[in-house]
C-alpha cells in the first residue's frame, strides 16, 4: 500500500485523516498514484491536477524521501521506499501568498 499525505484543505474535502493508503497496480508512478487517489476520492479530481490538462497545479508540490518530485515526469517510477510504504508521498500546498 502506498501512503499519501494530503494538505489540510484536501483532507477536509475528502473527509480523511492525515494519511490515506492506496493500492496501485503495476509499476506505480505519480500519474497512476494520483489516478488511484482520484478514483478513491472523486472530490479531489481537479484539485491537485488541472482537470483538463491533467498537469500539476502551479501551487501544488510533491515531496517524498526528502526530495522534491514536483518536476519529475508524471510517468517516472515512484521511489522504492514510497512503493513499499516505508515513506509517504506528500502532496503539499506551496507556501505562497503571505
Amino acid at each position: 500500500m502506498i501512503r499519501v499525505v494530503l494538505p489540510a484543505h484536501l483532507r477536509m474535502l475528502a473527509q480523511v485523516g492525515l494519511e490515506v493508503e492506496l493500492e496501485v497496480t503495476g509499476s506505480p508512478t505519480q500519474r497512476s498514484l494520483l489516478d488511484a487517489l482520484e478514483a478513491a476520492y472523486p472530490v479531489l479530481q481537479g484539485t491537485i491536477r488541472d482537470p483538463v490538462r491533467q498537469t500539476r497545479r502551479a501551487f501544488v508540490r510533491f515531496f517524498a524521501c526528502e526530495d522534491d518530485l514536483s518536476h519529475e515526469s508524471p510517468d517516472a517510477p515512484l521511489p522504492d521506499a514510497v512503493v513499499s510504504g516505508v515513506e509517504p508521498f506528500f502532496v503539499i500546498g506551496a507556501m505562497a501568498g503571505g
Binding site: V43, Q45, G46, T47, I48, P51, R57, V60, G97
Partner: peptide, 27 residues
C-alpha cells in the same frame, strides 16, 4: 476556490446546514 486547489461548487439542500461538493469541471 483557492489559487492552490482550484474551483469547487458546493450544494446544500438544507438551507446551508450541510454541504456537498458537486461539479468542478468548467471546460
Amino acid at each position: 476556490s483557492t489559487g492552490w486547489f482550484g474551483q469547487l461548487i458546493q450544494r446544500s439542500d438544507d438551507g446551508g446546514k450541510t454541504w456537498e461538493p458537486v461539479g468542478n469541471q468548467f471546460q
